[in-house]
Structure formats: structure tokens, C-alpha cells
């Protein structure tokens, strides 16, 4: 969990709208397998991250996602027996049976891998642009217990990460470096887990001491009016959701991997992809321009 000074549009907007923006991109990535749409969502995500100064977080996330995605591509190619274009025939293998690598499974595997990378990138953007404190603040009004759990959980991630880091350093300070291998690792994990309960109790006590449970509502009419950044982010998010609905209703960006790859590649799909990028980048670009004036 990290926080940044709210210097760009997506970071300045209220957290509910930044979250809506992120979830709109996520919905597009989840709803379509069409490579052009995924490419558009990926480009929009990286563009938005760059305009918001969060590209570093995305880079870290993608570095983590790529090996995972490649593994998925390989598994899909090996395991899936659909598709009619056989590229490699490995014959009969024990347990697995007949192994044929088809062109369709190979291409679809790569597409799935790309989709995983895009989804992880969008999630990283979402985490970077949404202020967790603001989310908890808003959640508390409607769902007190969930917000309490979320507050504890988000705080505990940081506390336990630091505990684990410190304990690992302490382990390395032992004359035998705390042993090696799986047993030593299990000891460490067990120790952090055993301490987690105590730490959670301490954090929960602090929440109590800060008056979290009192739930006094703020004075009526105290909420801020929508800023230019709020309006720009809301417009972008609604625009992306509208595109999603239209594409689903009219069956745009059709893609079928098996038995043969069927892919719609008309002007409509190109336009659809272009509009996604345009809608996603409208908020950071237009909102910022308005501010400079």
C-alpha cells in the first residue's frame, strides 16, 4: 500500500470516482478477449498511469505478471485439445495421453497471457489512484463492520510486511543464519503468523482509541462539490462503461478461438478500440488542461 501526493487528475478526484474509472477499465479487460480491445485497454492503462505519475507501480506489477502469463500460455497450449491446426504432435504420453499443440490453442494461450498482464496492470493502476483512507471513510458510513475489517486488513498488510522484514533480518543475525531450507522458512512464516494475532489486536485497539466505533456523522451538507477533476474522471468512467454496454449489446469485437480462430476485424472494432483509449485518456488530459488555464 502506498500513497502519493494528489498532484494529477486521477489522484485528485474523489476515491469513489477514481475507483469507478479503474473498475471500468477492468470490466473492459474482463469482458473481451479480442486482441484489439485488450491492446486498447493496455494502452489506455499505461497512458493513464503515465499521465498520473504511477508508471513505476505499473512497471513493477507487469514485471511480476509476465512470467505468470507466459506460464499460462504454455499450459493452455499443452493442456487444451481443441483447435484444428496441429502445429506439433508429441504423441502418446503417460498420464497426459495424446499431446497435440494446435495453432488455435497456442494463439489463444498467448492472448490469455496478454489479458492477464493487462488485468494486473489495470489492478495496479487502480491501487495507485485510489486513496484507501478515503475508501474506508466512505465505506464506514454504509458498511461499518466491513470497513473496520478492511481498515484492519489494509493496515495489517504493512505492519506484517515490516514485521517479516525485521524478523528476516534478525534471522540473518543468528550465528547459523537461522538455518536454511524449508524448515527455517516454515519457522519464519509460523512466527510471523503467531505474531499477527497480537499485532491485529494492537491495531484494533488503536482504532478503538481513535474513536472509530463512535460513528458520529459529519454535519449535514459538509461534502465538497464536484471538482473539475471529479467531473472529468466521472465522464471518462461513464464513457467507458457506455462503450462496454454498447459493444456487448451489439456483439462487437467478436472473438472465437476454437475450433478455428474467428476474429472480427472491421472498422467497428478499430473504432471501438480507439474510443476506449480516447475515453480513458480524456480525463487525465482534459482535466489537467483545465487546471493549467
Amino acid at each position: 500500500m502506498s500513497a502519493r501526493p494528489a498532484s494529477t487528475v486521477l489522484l485528485r478526484a474523489r476515491s469513489s470516482l477514481s475507483a469507478l474509472y479503474g473498475f471500468s477499465l477492468l470490466a473492459l479487460a474482463l469482458a473481451f478477449t479480442h486482441p484489439l480491445v485488450l491492446l486498447a485497454v493496455g494502452a489506455a492503462t499505461f497512458g493513464a498511469a503515465r499521465l498520473s505519475g504511477c508508471q513505476q507501480q505499473l512497471r513493477v506489477a507487469v514485471r511480476f505478471a509476465v512470467p505468470l502469463a507466459l506460464m499460462l500460455a504454455v499450459i493452455n497450449a499443452v493442456v487444451v485439445r481443441e483447435g484444428v491446426t496441429v502445429l506439433w504432435r508429441f504423441g502418446e504420453l503417460p498420464v497426459f495421453g495424446q499431446i497435440d499443440i494446435t495453432g488455435e490453442a497456442f494463439v489463444y494461450g498467448l492472448l490469455l497471457a496478454f489479458r492477464v498482464v493487462v488485468i494486473i496492470a489495470v489492478s495496479a493502476l487502480l491501487v495507485a489512484i485510489v486513496d484507501p483512507d478515503d475508501v474506508l471513510r466512505r465505506m464506514r458510513r454504509s458498511a461499518f463492520r466491513s470497513a473496520l475489517t478492511a481498515a484492519l486488513a489494509t493496515r495489517m498488510i504493512g505492519v506484517l510486511t515490516r514485521d517479516a522484514r525485521r524478523m528476516d533480518q534478525a534471522r540473518r543475525c543468528r550465528p547459523d543464519c537461522g538455518g536454511s531450507g524449508r524448515r527455517a522458512q516454515l519457522l519464519m512464516v509460523g512466527s510471523v503468523a503467531a505474531g499477527a494475532l497480537d499485532r491485529a489486536v494492537d491495531v484494533a485497539a488503536t482504532l478503538e482509541l481513535r474513536g472509530y466505533a463512535t460513528r458520529v456523522a459529519p454535519p449535514h451538507g459538509d461534502s465538497l462539490p464536484y471538482s473539475r477533476a471529479d467531473r472529468a474522471v466521472l465522464a471518462s468512467a461513464l464513457g467507458m462503461l457506455a462503450l462496454l454496454v454498447v459493444a456487448v449489446v451489439f456483439g462487437l469485437a467478436h472473438f472465437e478461438p476454437y475450433p478455428r480462430i474467428t476474429i472480427a476485424t472491421g472498422l467497428t472494432e478499430v473504432l471501438f478500440g480507439g474510443l476506449i483509449v480516447l475515453m480513458a485518456l480524456a480525463a487525465p488530459v482534459i482535466g489537467e488542461r483545465g487546471r493549467q488555464r
Binding site: M1, S2, A3, D131, P132, D133, L136, R137, A151, T154, R155, V159, R199, D202, V203, A205, T206, L207, R210, G211, Y212, T214, R215, V216, A217, P218, P219
Partner: peptide, 20 residues
């Protein structure tokens, strides 16, 4: 374990917000 929010500003604001 005495801080529960993500930023210092939010941490200082927290008890005040809880008072409404």
C-alpha cells in the same frame, strides 16, 4: 501499531472525523 491510516495527514484527521 499506533497508526491506522495510509498517510500522516489522514492519520491526524482520523480522530477528528470520528468526532463528526
Amino acid at each position: 501499531t499506533q497508526v491506522v491510516m495510509a498517510t500522516v495527514g489522514a492519520e491526524l484527521a482520523f480522530p477528528l472525523e470520528n468526532r463528526g
